[in-house]
Nucleic acid binder design. Sequence first.
DNA 1: GAGAAGCGGATAGCGTGCATCCGCTTCAAC
DNA 2: GTTGAAGCGGATGCACGCTATCCGCTTCTC
Lengths: 222, 222
Amino acid sequence: MTPRPDHEPARRGTLRRDAERNRDRIVRAAQELFAERGLAVGFNEVAHHAGVGVGTVYRRFADKEELIHAALAEPLGELAEAARRAGEAERAWDGLELLLGSITELLVDNLGLRDVALGGGGWRLGRSTVERVADVLRYLLDRARAEGDLRDGVAGDDVMMILWLVTDLAQHSVQVRPRLYRRYLQVLLDGLRAAPDRAPLVEEPTEQQVLAICRRWAGAPL
Amino acid sequence: MTPRPDHEPARRGTLRRDAERNRDRIVRAAQELFAERGLAVGFNEVAHHAGVGVGTVYRRFADKEELIHAALAEPLGELAEAARRAGEAERAWDGLELLLGSITELLVDNLGLRDVALGGGGWRLGRSTVERVADVLRYLLDRARAEGDLRDGVAGDDVMMILWLVTDLAQHSVQVRPRLYRRYLQVLLDGLRAAPDRAPLVEEPTEQQVLAICRRWAGAPL
DNA sequence: GAGAAGCGGATAGCGTGCATCCGCTTCAAC
DNA sequence: GTTGAAGCGGATGCACGCTATCCGCTTCTC
């Protein structure tokens, strides 16, 4: 028999019953792990979490890109949908707050999504979604500027940097205080606004929590 | 002969002339590399950069902690000194701005220093310095609150988180736009203030730069 | 010029992650 | 039931990067 390389993908639908079931398990496991810990999670771990052997994972997915695609198709859709909704806001600034709020929430709750969305195009996947979001962002930013809600000198790229900052913070703090990132998103957004808000700050952390977060951020030092 | 383990430290001053010279080279190399890229730099690289073999490094420094100590003693002093100066400010808020500004600058220009200073106590070294800075910080924060300059609900720990955020940003952007971090430090500080400043934003990045920074932030993805 | 002190860098050990291979199990068509 | 293809598991090999050691050779110093 031809020892067909492990990863040759039998066309979907032609799979044996048990194989189909395993494939689903794998995708679900990947979704969970990627969401929780980002795309750095390895095949071995995905396999174990799905309750199958590594071989089985490689048999269904030629490489990581393919697995990521299967695991992130849906959340990418949500991202695009969030952008669409925000684009319809009456006042552009409200749309911006809504968009930033929902994007960060999506990215924070799914760190794998964050990796592809902010990956600077490093992952081919999802580039079109990112483009769509960026378009809405630019549109809202221009309108908000015209409506006088935007602080002088704010650039579109500032929003990009803020997304990185906030989701990076979130990555280190989710386990300790899931919504802490909102506090600093609030401060940053307030700082981009022409007339500041000064609403009471949300999500005040305890000293314990801050210490724990610092330790995580520093990584296990040696 | 007793094959004295490589790293047994001959007492300083008893070193042979050439050995002394090499030791200095190593410390200088470590200072440079740690400052530029943080404490993750390995012994091998330090050795190579100093123009000596790895063995020579291990002979003088029993472990990484010892080398770090030698390389960071001076910058740690600068940190303490910056805190002292800031504590003497007339108005507490000015002291805070000064302190945050100089701390971030020191930490950004020396990423190794950042690693020990923010390391959540993971590195024994420098704990006393960090304590001293924290004391000044608390003192200024209390005074600023009393003087009515601080936004309601700002906690001392917020400053800690801001230091992490800003220096983390800096870590990914120094190579591209060395002072970009000032822009977001400005926004964040503005957000902690009772009456906002709205000074024109500094250091506007180009689209090119933002893209480059994102790519670095994402790491080389695979 | 002798011997202690110092040197370099090959090498071993370790941890992590990707990818493959192959003997065994399970399915499903007959 | 039988049988052969499809599928399975996970040990295994490879590559990488870092720490740490060892030992034959060189250099300094008295």
